[in-house]
Design a protein around this nucleic acid. Structure first.
Lengths: 164, 164
DNA sequence: ATTACTGCAAAAAGTTTGCAGCTAC
DNA sequence: GTAGCTGCAAACTTTTTGCAGTAAT
């Protein structure tokens, strides 16, 4: 088992599409297999808020023999490479979304459940205020937003996401 | 099964101590039982980052016959009443911390694992920026911070927390 | 006395591990 | 040919549900 926390892409330019994610996998020394391509395709097609079970179902459209275990193992690798990030919400913490930035946060559409990354969360002011208020020394943070995507409606939402 | 999302305390003045939380439970119409007092005591004593299993172990110090199921059911009630909040982190999403404010966020000490609430997260500027960047209409957010508590050392951290 | 609460046991859901066969290189 | 990958089965962990006895009001 390999899986180290070596981010291959320090830049902000990381792939959102299956091909780019596959390239990153290969570059990190992993093999190009049908199962992995299927998981990548599933993650990009669902675009967020997909559980391992969901990813199995979608992934089997691409690779019918895909097993749940491989989904877990692939997610582990993708997380370690920073290509995928786990999302947390009150509904549960079993959703995975493509990650494109080293310090990215996600915004999740309450309408279509898709997640999109945003960049440059400038919460320096909040950090300062929290440090003053609590006496803590802040080291890192977790930020997620919830709202409605531009289309508001599901179809539009998907389109606007794909169009990016 | 009762459990509705009726926050009894709209004000920012909600209890951090077992007695106050118990009062809130009673006010909401729940019974005063040994098992619930034990769970409350356990949550306040651990102060955050305690899993249901941890809370069972600690709670049994107060009420030896306490069962895991009752811990889950009590947590469900406390969450619905806004007295307790689930914390999320890379390590997992099974930690519960006392909640004192309606719109509170938690900061978690990486040294002693305790969680403390802070108030007035002013991320309006971030919201505006994210809306401009993504086209989303932001409705809510989840923010958690990680850092070191004033004492830096475990003993001091516990003290400083208790002293509040 | 009545209703709510508790805890055991069992079931269900989610995740990890062992291993033999298969696939990529 | 070799090393890595896959998927089945099984084990394990966490959470939920059913139910009969218990405790609170």
């Amino acid at each position: 088992m390999k899986i180290e926390n070596h981010f291959q892409f320090e830049s902000n330019q990381t792939p959102l599409d299956p091909a780019g994610m596959l390239a990153a996998l290969l570059e990190a020394g992993y093999s190009n297999t049908g199962a992995r391509r299927a998981v990548l395709a599933a993650i990009c097609q669902t675009g967020g808020q997909a559980s391992p079970a969901d990813l199995l179902a979608v992934g089997r459209q691409f690779h019918p023999r895909l097993g749940q275990v491989t989904v877990y193992r692939t997610l582990e690798i993708l997380q370690a490479l920073g290509l995928v990030r786990k999302l947390h919400s009150d509904a549960g913490c079993h959703a995975y979304a493509p990650a494109t930035h080293d310090h990215g946060h996600h915004i999740i559409c309450q309408g279509c459940q898709r997640a999109m990354e945003f960049e440059g969360c400038d919460i320096a002011a909040v950090v300062t205020s929290v440090e003053a208020q609590t006496g803590f020394q802040v080291q890192s943070h977790w930020l997620e937003m919830f709202g409605l995507c531009p289309g508001l409606r599901i179809a539009d939402c998907h389109l606007s996401f794909a169009r990016r």
